[in-house]
Design a binder for these strands. Structure first.
Lengths: 260, 260
DNA sequence: CGTGCGGTTGATGTAAATCAACCCATGTGG
DNA sequence: CCACATGGGTTGATTTACATCAACCGCACG
């Protein structure tokens, strides 16, 4: 229930180019996880103009109904999209991790159809839409990468539908954790154990269509099975392979190495 | 449980141009529902080369894991995307209506991440990817429309997540019916009553994350309330306004008149 | 004219929600 | 430095929405 006050994003005051210091590495790597970019293209991306924004946990980045005129990239921290429903419930419909672009959509749609909120403290690179449009115009591979990124997010959304619609609480939670570990390890290789999960139990509930209480009990059972570990409020993935088995996880939908 | 045999789509044998007879009107109108296209662009779209395919109910159009080399457009009939889960359950993740493009995704992603199946008998216009790519290259407004279409489908997917994750059976069913009525009436005006719903109760169940039995009982209650009408196996929307109220429906996510 | 799919209905089971305490770590102000 | 407030988290008792199981029905169609 802690919907915090907003810090609406405006056009970057003076297009301060923190360009040179490689803050966009993250973003480039994300695009490379599913798209092919020449080293020239990659260098060009690193020169995109942006202004840096720091937001605290729970601050809003976009609100439903707004018209966005900039595109934030998530340099560090986590964020999520969510929608509210009449009776006060909310559903998280996407989780964004460091390197993810947060709003390519506003290049094409006038109105934002969901809320975008910081999960942890975040650093954003706020890029003017015009700069992105220009780069997409001049560099077809970049344009392709943008669309591919949109499509991969849509694919993840479809898998979430399956997850919420058809899997029980245990498999559902396990599946989400598998996806998170995969995504946090941008490399194509099966990822290491001990990934940290930065969500509270309430947030997990809002993401998985369950209640916090039930998340708690389900986590407990996963811990007893040895699949996760918890110390205090910190949640870690302990046995990735076991989680994959519980969730019947397949990573096809993430479209890793789409380019071969 | 009636997963029927496939009629996998291949490259159109001889690019038979049924061009002139306006079969792509549907498709153009769909794009116009969210995008701006000059009359010149519209004319050009109507000249896209395609070959006509007729499929019966339940025939597969695409299968998970395949590599598609053509893009089918749905001229008439209904189709749906779905994914299967380990225990035999399935989740429908998108419903496609006449005029909808069925696989822009394969322009950018190598592997199909879901199954695409005919719901009713369908007519498909199968367009070679190369022709679409060429047109997107030459006509930026068309390229924009393609991406916008992708984004609107993704937006609908997010709303489905909210629907399945957070609404009870009654509101969930009502919400889906509202969406269907809206989409079937491509005009921006609030649509008329008495729309026909072409899904069986089992399909509704697979789409809404419920069981057929529960769909049956929920439909019964909606009928008693006067929101829908049923004669035999035919289901109709009787009171659209009431359904909207039950579902707390807002059409923002459909991005109608995005250009208006 | 039978056969089967889709629909309908009732009885029963159960996963998850709800309600309600209480706990603990952390942070904050007196 | 303690008093207290606060936001997670944990746990048990109870309720409930939906699933499951099992018949049976009736139209459509081959």
């Amino acid at each position: 229930m802690d919907r915090q006050s907003s810090a609406a994003l405006s056009e970057p005051s003076a297009a301060s180019s923190d360009v040179a210091d490689g803050r966009l590495d993250n973003f480039t790597r994300k695009l490379l996880s599913h798209s092919l970019l020449s080293t020239d293209d990659q260098r060009a991306i690193l020169t995109l103009p942006f202004s840096l924004r720091l937001l605290g946990p729970n601050e809003y980045i976009l609100r439903e109904g707004e018209q966005a005129r900039v595109c934030p990239l998530l340099l560090s921290g986590f964020a999520y999209r969510h929608k509210l429903v009449a009776d006060g419930g909310r559903q998280i419909v996407a989780l964004k991790i460091p390197g993810d672009p947060l709003d390519f959509q506003s290049l094409y749609l006038r109105r934002v159809d969901h809320n975008l909120q910081a999960l942890t403290a975040v650093e954003l690179a706020v890029v003017p839409l015009a700069a992105l449009e220009k780069m997409a115009m001049e560099r077809p591979a970049f344009a392709r990468a943008v669309i591919t990124d949109i499509l991969v997010e849509a694919s993840i959304g479809r898998e979430w539908l399956v997850n919420i619609g058809r899997r029980n609480a245990t498999a559902r939670l396990a599946h989400f954790l598998c996806e998170l570990v995969y995504r946090l390890n941008q490399t194509a290789s099966p990822p290491a154990d001990e990934s940290d999960v930065p969500l509270t139990q309430e947030q997990l509930a809002d993401l998985l269509g369950l209640t916090p209480v039930h998340i708690n009990r389900t986590l407990k059972r996963l811990e007893e099975a040895g699949a996760v570990r918890r110390k205090g409020r910190r949640l870690k993935v302990a046995d990735f392979a076991m989680l994959c088995r519980i969730a019947d996880f397949s990573d096809l939908y993430l479209h890793r190495g789409n380019v071969g």
